[in-house]
Nucleic acid binder design. Structure first.
Length: 324
DNA sequence: AAGGAAGCCAACCGCCTTTGG
DNA sequence: GCCAAAGGCGGTTGGCTTCCT
């Protein structure tokens, strides 16, 4: 059970003069405030959060109301400790998405970005740190070196034609590297043991499901593909959509219409923005998974980012679904 | 039992993006 | 195009709880 919300807000909260006579409360929420917000939200839903604060009779700013609702009052919150499966998914998504907590949260129903962020910064990070205690003396403090943006894409300073290592391999903390690498070496088994449905497809792909729901998949070289953010897609629907071409299909089931950008910075910026919201393609598409050979015929190591491939795919985003 | 350290987590802060006038 | 307001997000803080000595 979650700890009861801390009481006695009057002792902790301060009042903020918002430039006028109306003073805005800050600090912990009282049960009365929660009741007001909850009942208002149940009756009216939220439109403009500033209006919510005003109309619900709360001396709070809209932002504060929004945060309280999202992180605590929302009825669909799961609460309670993270399960092993959730933990695995967090590690997995973090290796792909970096600190984009909201995007990770969007893939874990009932969990908030704040919750996941706290969980990561306390539990998981600590565990990784402990597991690295015997590693390289050069290891820097993982807490300060947390990879800010694992999926920011190839360091944008790199030459566009240069392959760059996948970002998490640049993380100076060996603990994080080894944990993620271990996970990537055999991502399927733990998932299978945890009760997820694994369906093998031709080309070595593995579809991960929970019950009948499609969660995501691993590609032929074990590269994890970020599952698209969909309201709900069943495995059956996914199969229908993937019959012709898995990568194309992933674009088909997503909404990439807003993707635009004619330079690398914009593309990656858009990738960051659309990567989950419009989901669908997964980073796996841009990794060298074409027989381990890049377009120059050079051997390409798994785990290296193929910028050229990425650019090719990106160029087709705005107007068409994926073209392979 | 007391006090300090560490852990945990709700909430704030500041920045960026989006939206509407 | 400009500006202001609102929304959204990740980083950080502060205080309560739990653990340890």
């Amino acid at each position: 059970m979650r700890k009861p919300d801390r009481m006695n807000p009057s002792a902790n909260s301060s009042l903020k003069n918002n430039g006028g006579d109306n003073k805005l409360r800050k600090g912990l929420w009282s049960p009365e405030e929660d009741d007001k917000l909850m009942s208002y939200m149940m009756n009216n839903g939220h439109g403009c959060w500033s209006d919510v604060a005003r109309n619900a009779g709360l001396q709070r700013c809209g932002k504060s109301c929004r945060l309280r609702w999202i992180n605590y009052l929302r009825p669909d919150l799961k609460r309670g400790a993270f399960s092993l499966q959730e933990e695995e998914l967090i590690i997995h998504f973090h290796s792909l998405l970096g600190n984009r907590w909201s995007q990770i949260a969007a893939r874990l129903p009932g969990r908030t970005d704040n919750e996941i962020k706290n969980f990561w910064n306390s539990t998981i990070k600590k565990r990784m740190k402990n597991s690295s205690s015997d590693s390289s003396p050069n290891a820097s403090d993982s807490s300060s070196s947390d990879h800010k943006d694992a999926n920011t894409g190839p360091g944008l300073n790199n030459s566009p034609h240069e392959k760059v290592p996948i970002p998490f391999l640049l993380d100076p903390a060996p603990a994080i590297q080894s944990l993620i690498l271990d996970y990537m070496m055999d991502p399927i088994s733990p998932l299978e043991q945890s009760g997820y449905t694994i369906q093998s497809l031709p080309q070595g792909r593995e579809i991960i499901g929970e019950g009948t729901q499609y969660l995501g998949e691993y590609g032929e070289f074990g590269e994890a593909l970020v599952p698209p953010l969909l309201e709900n897609i069943s495995l059956e629907e996914h199969h229908l959509k993937t019959e012709s071409n898995p990568y194309e299909s992933k674009a088909n089931i997503s909404n990439l219409n807003t993707f635009s950008g004619d330079n690398i910075d914009n593309n990656f910026d858009n990738l960051r923005k659309t990567g989950s919201t419009y989901g669908g393609f997964g980073v796996g598409n841009f990794w060298n998974n074409n027989n381990n050979t890049n377009h120059n015929g050079e051997d390409a190591k798994i785990g290296e980012w193929d910028l050229e491939e990425f650019m090719r795919d990106v160029s087709s985003f705005p107007f068409h679904d994926f073209q392979c």
